[in-house]
Computed example of a mutant assay.
Amino acid sequence: MKLHDLLVHAHAGHVDELNLVSLEGGIYVLEVHMDGKALPVKDEHGKILHLRSVEHARDVLQQLPRLPFHLVHAEVHDEMCGMQPAACQPLRVPISMNSAW
């Protein structure tokens, strides 16, 4: 889903929640949950939008209405070579869409 489409769907009340997913290397991606599906947010060129931080995500999302917003971290063991896949859920921490300042 492109960022513009996210704005339209969010203002129409169709978005259930947003997740800011932390990836290896200090990269974050946005995931939209809508109609029982999880969709990545893409830029205007159709490539997955990469963000640098929680504050960067808040800047990008400042035009959205308030939505449930979570910072999601995968288990570190899931990213380690040679480790058996774990059957546990990633860490999901609720965060504010607005800066705390």
Rank of each mutant, 00 (worst) to 15 (best):
K2N: 15
K2F: 15
K2G: 14
L3R: 08
H4S: 14
H4E: 13
D5C: 03
D5W: 10
L6S: 13
L6R: 09
L7W: 14
L7K: 11
V8T: 14
V8H: 14
H9R: 15
H9C: 07
H9Y: 13
A10T: 03
H14Q: 13
H14S: 13
V15S: 08
V15M: 02
V15H: 10
D16V: 06
D16C: 07
E17M: 04
L18R: 06
N19V: 02
L20T: 05
S22R: 12
L23Y: 02
L23P: 00
E24G: 07
G25R: 08
I27S: 01
Y28M: 04
Y28L: 02
L30R: 01
E31P: 02
E31R: 12
V32L: 00
M34N: 04
M34Q: 12
M34E: 09
M34I: 04
D35Y: 10
G36A: 00
G36K: 05
K37Q: 08
A38C: 01
P40F: 12
P40E: 03
P40T: 11
V41L: 00
V41E: 01
D43C: 04
E44Y: 14
E44Q: 14
G46F: 06
G46Y: 02
L49R: 09
L49P: 01
L51F: 07
L51E: 04
S53A: 03
V54F: 10
V54Q: 09
E55K: 15
E55R: 15
A57H: 02
R58K: 15
D59F: 09
D59M: 07
D59Y: 09
L61W: 11
L61M: 14
Q62Y: 14
Q63I: 04
L64R: 11
P65I: 03
P65F: 13
P65Y: 15
R66M: 05
L67M: 08
L67G: 13
L67I: 00
L67Y: 15
P68K: 15
F69L: 02
F69K: 03
H70L: 07
L71S: 11
V72M: 03
H73C: 02
H73V: 05
A74C: 05
V76F: 10
H77G: 03
H77S: 11
E79A: 10
C81W: 14
G82M: 03
Q84R: 14
P85V: 03
A86L: 08
A86M: 08
C88L: 01
C88K: 13
C88V: 05
Q89H: 10
Q89C: 05
Q89E: 00
Q89P: 04
P90R: 01
L91C: 09
L91Q: 11
L91P: 03
R92F: 00
R92A: 10
V93T: 11
I95P: 00
M97I: 11
N98D: 10
N98P: 01
S99Y: 11
A100V: 06
W101M: 07
